[in-house]
Amino acid sequence: MRGSAGAPGSTHATEPTDGAELAAFLRELKTYEGRPAAEAGVGKDPVNEPMIRHWCEAMGDENPAYAGPDAVAPPTMLQAWTMGGLNGHKGDAGRSAAYDALFGLLDGAGFTSVVATDCEQEYLRPLRPGDVITFDAVIESVSAQKTTKLGTGHFVTTRMDVQANGEPAGTHRFRILKYAPAHSKPRAEPHSKPRGKQPPARPRPVINRDNSGFWAGVERQQLLVQRCTDCAALRFPWLPGCNGCGSPRWDTVEASGEGTVYSYVVMHHPPFPAFNPPYAVGLVELAEGVRMISNVVGVPADEVRIGMPVRVEFRQVEKDLVLPVFRAVPGSAD
């Protein structure tokens, strides 16, 4: 099992309103009670002096029983010996499939956050450097849906039996709340610039075998349109074959960059990280006759009009991202 989280919030819970759906979900959750949470787990390190010392340093615990030649480990380290650490336990030596499945079920229902609420430990014998730790754990109970200050969720209680060199050394009962945060904030707020040092990055164009020539052109500040070498039809966006005759043969022509707004929308909602609504998205008909979609800039979004003349502009949107956008030709917004 994971040595999950620490603290927040009240654990005083209230019963939710019941419903057939909730009841069915709870029945499914209850099937996990009594199933293993961890099977034949093995501590990554035997009980050892350096880990004991690091623990005592962190806790400010100067108890002489935890140092010297006859040192025992602080009993409250019990769970620490079973932790997977940064990389988790290898293979099956940790959380069971049942525990993962239960978490998956709760995640799927939106209860994605975890917080530890209770820890009850009983110490049966002292742990000494060299003791090899093994453990098994069982899912004791899964609660009905509860609403706490943190949010709504289910309490999951596990009981772990810890052995040292095969002898019972302690029990560790652990309760977590798997919950949907009550006050989770949207990642971006509308009509505001992203805060913090690092503004969110714009999504990158998907560049593949079929359209890489177009993006290579953009790098050179050229707006390239495909031309069928069999029937001479121009096409955009880039495709492997001709819409007209089906020929796979093509070359390119560089568009003049002149065009008109064929249609447009103004984006207000929902806001999306890295975008700052409102902004206009135009379907621009190029002078060569093909149409392409990009932002219409250089004019307030609510002043974009069908038929408005525009010209391509290669805009450095981010350090490593240039995009072709269309700037309204001055005087055209009247």
């Binding site: 040595g3 989280a5 620490g6 603290a7 927040p8 623990w55 962190a58 806790m59 400010g60 615990d61 108890n63 029983a65 602080p74 009993p75 409250t76 380290m77 769970q79 620490a80 956050s113 530890a116 609420t117 820890c119 430990q121 945060p181 006050h183 989770s184 904030k185």
Partner: peptide, 23 residues
């Protein structure tokens, strides 16, 4: 994740409570 800052984990709290009583 909706927390105003990092916060102490339960194992540390457990260790501090143990230390308090033995101290």
């Amino acid at each position: 994740k909706g927390s105003p800052d990092i916060f102490m984990n339960i194992l540390t709290t457990n260790g501090l409570v143990g230390r308090y009583v033995t101290d």
